[in-house]
Write a protein that binds this DNA or RNA. Structure first.
Length: 331
DNA sequence: GGGCCCGCAGGG
DNA sequence: CCCTGCGGGCCC
């Protein structure tokens, strides 16, 4: 008797939504932000470095963190035969335009047409700003903002983001250490994370591990990602780092990627969305065919940062399924 | 579209 | 040194 995978997903998403809602309730009252123009939707005709008039947000531990750092075990002994259904993705890489796009800063180091090998070479004799250099000038293990990187900064690839020290790993979604906590995460979607919710100022995130990075016949271990094949745990270094962040309440840099299914996802590339706190950590059943456990985390954005760009045209499948009323999503 | 291969940055 | 990890390019 195969478990209804859609039902499981719905259940998990309801759980995630409840977690995020709790964050909202715990959230201290903040003065409403003046919102003159809700724009930033379809036609990013120019650069988008507005609204950041005052200086960068300092890397400061939030002072309103009084939540108990709970790791709740959620028993879910469900298994399923079906895999998570892939929903159609509207984003794609269609309108990739490097000549004029919604960049806050255009980096000439990498373009989509350049090969990673070339990209890894240093551009000789480019001294100066550092932003033009193909090497890192800031420490990615910093907690909080990276100097010179504004909220909203956009990159075409994870490599560029790494060079700017916002998120060091090229592939991994979590960067940090188990002793000090997480420095940064990337929200990049993916089938295994298909129950995660993104409300913009809050979101849920699935941990790392539990994958068998086998590879192919000739080349074992040549894969960088793979389907879930075992339970995740907080022993995993990445997950441990996020768990540590729940305790430390140090800010975590958040980058959203184009593959994320969210109205807050960039249409292409990767965008720095500012600093968040990891508020909770718990275990849940993952959106994998066998119901392996995953580590889950809830994030909450620190106040006082520029508003997130929104894709108004985005139809959130997630939002619909967790909204009890509408429910006419017959397929 | 999927399969395969690749370089890389971290951490143990 | 080894292994992991929500990339990305290329080929089919």
């Amino acid at each position: 008797m195969p478990i209804d995978f859609a039902a499981l997903r719905k259940k998990q998403m309801a759980e995630n939504a409840a977690r995020l809602k709790k964050l909202d309730l715990d959230h201290p009252i903040v003065p409403p932000r003046p919102k003159p123009t809700p724009k930033v939707a379809s036609k990013p005709s120019r650069k988008r470095k507005d609204s950041n008039t005052s200086g960068e947000l300092e890397a400061r531990p939030a002072k309103m963190a009084k939540n108990a750092s709970t790791v709740t075990e959620i028993d879910a002994s469900v298994a399923s035969e079906e895999g998570p259904r892939r929903s159609r993705r509207t984003s794609g890489r269609a309108s990739l335009n490097y000549n004029e796009s919604n960049l806050t800063r255009m980096s000439p180091r990498l373009t989509k047409t350049m090969r990673p090998q070339l990209a890894s070479k240093k551009l000789s004799g480019q001294g100066g700003s550092g932003l033009m250099l193909n090497k890192r000038v800031h420490d990615p293990k910093t907690f909080g903002a990276i100097p010179g990187i504004e909220v909203g900064t956009w990159w075409g690839s994870r490599q560029e983001c790494s060079i700017d020290a916002v998120h060091a790993p090229w592939v991994a979604g979590i960067s940090g250490s188990r002793t000090k906590g997480a420095n940064s995460v990337v929200l990049s979607g993916g089938g295994e994370y298909h129950d995660d919710l993104d409300m913009g100022h809050t979101f849920t995130y699935t941990g790392a591990g539990g994958r068998d990075l086998k590879g192919t016949a000739n080349k074992p271990k040549n894969l960088r990602t793979a389907a879930q094949s075992s339970d995740q745990s907080f022993e995993n270094a990445c997950n441990a780092a996020l768990l540590k962040s729940v305790k430390t309440q140090l800010p975590v840099r958040v980058v959203r990627g184009y593959k994320l299914e969210s109205r807050y996802a960039p249409e292409t590339g990767y965008r720095y969305d500012g600093l968040y706190l990891v508020k909770e950590a718990w275990m849940a059943t993952g959106m994998n065919p066998h119901g392996y456990k995953v580590c889950k985390f809830s994030f909450q954005r620190i106040d006082g940062q520029p508003d997130l760009p929104e894709r108004e045209d985005y139809e959130s499948e997630e939002e619909r399924s967790v909204t009890p009323e509408i429910e006419e999503t017959s397929d």
